[in-house]
């Protein structure tokens, strides 16, 4: 019962955070809001990426992670696609962690 209550509470809290802004923006946003929104995806994605790239969990070589993210960033910049940066980064990490 306690477990069901906890899970239900977590589900409600999560839905609230996902729905609140989507529900509130009910009309054409103002010019200032639109100017701000232009920067939100870049800021959010960078904020999701950066800590994972620079912190090393456990005994994994931090240099292999940096190299993987560096190669990934280069490929992302040149191709602007997901698969090249994902594949290039992972292969770089595997090669360096085997060596």
């Amino acid at each position: 019962m306690e477990t069901a209550l906890r899970i239900a509470g977590m589900a409600l809290a999560t839905f609230f955070t996902r729905y609140a802004m989507i529900a509130m923006v009910g009309r054409e946003p103002s010019a200032l809001f639109r100017r701000w929104l232009r920067y939100v995806p870049a800021a959010l994605l960078a904020a999701l990426i950066a800590p994972a790239a620079l912190t090393s969990p456990g005994e994994v070589s931090i240099h292999a992670r940096w190299a993987a993210m560096g190669v990934g960033a280069l490929l992302a910049w040149r191709t602007r696609q997901v698969l090249p940066s994902l594949a290039g980064g992972l292969v770089t990490f595997w090669v360096l962690s085997i060596l």
Binding site: L45, R65, A76, Q81, V82, P84, L86
Partner: peptide
């Protein structure tokens, strides 16, 4: 390196 899947994929999206 499997925890790098999201940051690497997001790099491609960020661009």
């Amino acid at each position: 390196g499997l925890d790098l899947v999201f940051p690497l994929a997001f790099l491609g999206l960020l661009m």
